[in-house]
Design a protein around this nucleic acid. Structure first.
Lengths: 110, 110
DNA sequence: AGTCTATATCGTAATATTGCAATATCAATA
DNA sequence: TATTGATATTGCAATATTACGATATAGACT
């Protein structure tokens, strides 16, 4: 035991959970924030922006990449990371959908 | 080592990470889905809806509650869980904000 | 009081995540 | 081709998460 029973849930639920999990660490939220702040996405200085050692940052970048939240093109010597809009659209849609559903209810017991 | 260095990140980043982390497991996404689906939020049957043992479900509910995503009122014998709109609004705003920022860019290098 | 039902907590095993030093890789450049 | 600079990978220790059986708690109903 100890391993998540992904097979018992729907693909959609697993997909949202995977994306949410990737954002479930402040360093990775900080990375997304930074990629948004920087004008272009030619970024080789993410490591300097974060209060973590280089291998740790590299690992967080890998996880964001695996989850599909960012993509990284090799740009000669450095790597150009940027946000993958598709994944963020998925999340935005999910939460927008929840909000409209909650609007419609509004009678709730609590 | 091994513990997340929350103190090095902003409150906002930590707040989003906490909410996202709470949704970072398919069972918890499934719980939110179920609470949305059910008309009223008088729900004592979440355990029967999930393919997990009762203590496990209880633990997931606790985590959602700690993160502020749901609230639970004791309703005599059972407990009435329902979604806490405030937390979901926070998430929706966060992703909506990202989307508009991404709209404005659009020139990106990737 | 005793029983049933719903939920929480405890204890614990299996697994995953976080963080970093050391090391590897690989393109650019001297 | 040797060196430098940027990033990835490996290996490992500390910690956290996931899951569940056993047990506790507490209201409802005999």
């Amino acid at each position: 035991m100890g391993a998540t029973k992904t097979e018992h849930f729907t693909d959609k639920q697993n997909a949202i959970a995977t994306l949410a999990k990737a954002l479930g660490h402040p360093a990775r939220v900080a990375i997304i924030d930074y990629l948004l702040k920087v004008d272009a996405c030619i970024c080789g200085d993410i490591v300097n922006e974060l209060p973590l050692a280089q291998p740790t940052v590299s690992q967080h970048l890998k996880e964001l990449k695996n989850a599909g939240l960012i993509k990284g093109d090799i740009e000669g010597n450095t790597i150009c990371y940027c946000i993958d809009e598709k994944a963020l659209d998925k999340l935005q849609n999910y939460f927008a959908n929840i909000s409209t559903k909650l609007e419609k209810k509004k009678k709730g017991c609590c």
